[in-house]
C-alpha cells in the first residue's frame, strides 16, 4: 500500500510501497503539478519501474517550466535503483 500525503508547504510525503498496483493513485498526486515539489522518501520502502515511470512523467512536465522534483531521505535500495537507471542524473536527490 502506498500513502501519499501533502504537507502545508506543498511537500509530498510517500510511505509504503510504490508498485504497479499503485500507479493510478499516484498519477493524481504527481501529474499536472504546476510547480516543483520536494518529495520525502523517508517512509518509502520500495519502488518499482512503475513508480519510476510516474516520477519521470512528472519530472518531464515540470522541466518544461524550468522546475523539477527534489527527492529527500531516499533509502539505500531505492538510491541504487535511481543510480542504475540514471535517474540520479535527472532528479535532484538530497
Amino acid at each position: 500500500m502506498l500513502e501519499i500525503t501533502e504537507g502545508a508547504g506543498g511537500e509530498i510525503a510517500l510511505a509504503g510501497r510504490f508498485d504497479a498496483s499503485q500507479v493510478e493513485r499516484a498519477k493524481g498526486a504527481f501529474l499536472g503539478l504546476q510547480e516543483g515539489r520536494t518529495v520525502d522518501f523517508s517512509k518509502l520502502d520500495y519502488i518499482s519501474s512503475a513508480g519510476l515511470g510516474i516520477l519521470l512523467a512528472a519530472q518531464k512536465e515540470l522541466s518544461g517550466r524550468g522546475q523539477g522534483l527534489r527527492l529527500i531521505h531516499v533509502n539505500g535500495h531505492i538510491r541504487d535503483v535511481f543510480r542504475l537507471s540514471g535517474f540520479d542524473q535527472i532528479f535532484e536527490i538530497v
Binding site: S49, G53, L56, S63
Partner: peptide, 20 residues
Amino acid sequence: AVDPAAPLGSRTPGGLGIHL
C-alpha cells in the same frame, strides 16, 4: 536497450524495469 545516460527529454519508462 535502455541508455541510462540519456537526457530527461529523451527518456521513456519503456524497458526500464528489464534493464534494472
